[in-house]
Amino acid sequence: MDWNLLATQLFGVTHGIVREGDFLRGTVEFDGEPLTVIGTTAHAPIGVQLALAQARAVLDTIAQHPGRAILLLIDTQGQQLRRRDELLGINRAMAHLGLCLDLARRRGHRVLGLVYDQALSGGFITSGLIADACDALPEAEIRVMRLPAMARVTKLPEAMLAELSESNPVFAPGVGNYVAMGGVRRLWQGDLAQALREALDDAPTQDRRAEDGAARGGRRLAASVVQQVLDAP
């Protein structure tokens, strides 16, 4: 979904979210409460600059508006694949964004992720995946890599991966699979404003994704392995 259409449906035509390049930022009012919105659009590749822009908005919210909820609007093709970004420490900039969001959470800000278009690996891991909860629109797409590229890197036949992806959520793109594995909490259906209201109301504070993945059948072992480590003699 187009970010502006989404913002209009959620917050009205005077939503106040501003686009600068691929970066989205704004303070909106929702049910009478101010809410910080931080996001990207146009399938933005997340490099050092865009990671820092998001981190800046998080730090400002922590400093100036204690406790204010943060909504992350996610649309990214993944990390920026450039030598310059590697040289400048893109992994450190990504970690910094993750640390900012994590500090916000620890200080009582609810942090919600919403994948409204597409999410890929490196651009997603320190945004939606580090939030209290990450939800998605049904038409969004989440994946690590396209199947042809995955076939090339793993040296496995693409046809085999395509066939497996029909039955095994581990290989296939799609938000439904991420829900089954617990990585996405739920999909927003119908009235989007109502979905946001519910998402804010029941944002978890503990990481329950492995348990969710086991309960939903998409990731059967993770939770039990964690428990086995806790119980190991």
């Binding site: 993750g98 620890r106 995946l129 580090i130 989440i142 994946r143 496995l156 290989f171 993770a222």
Partner: peptide, 26 residues
């Protein structure tokens, strides 16, 4: 990084490691 043979599960797992690590650090 993420083991591509377990793509989606690996990606979620790395993010779980990140959150668990930050709990320990905190």
């Amino acid at each position: 990084g993420v083991r591509l043979h377990e793509a989606n599960a690996g990606l979620i797992a790395v993010s779980e490691v990140m959150r668990a690590l930050l709990d320990v650090r905190a």
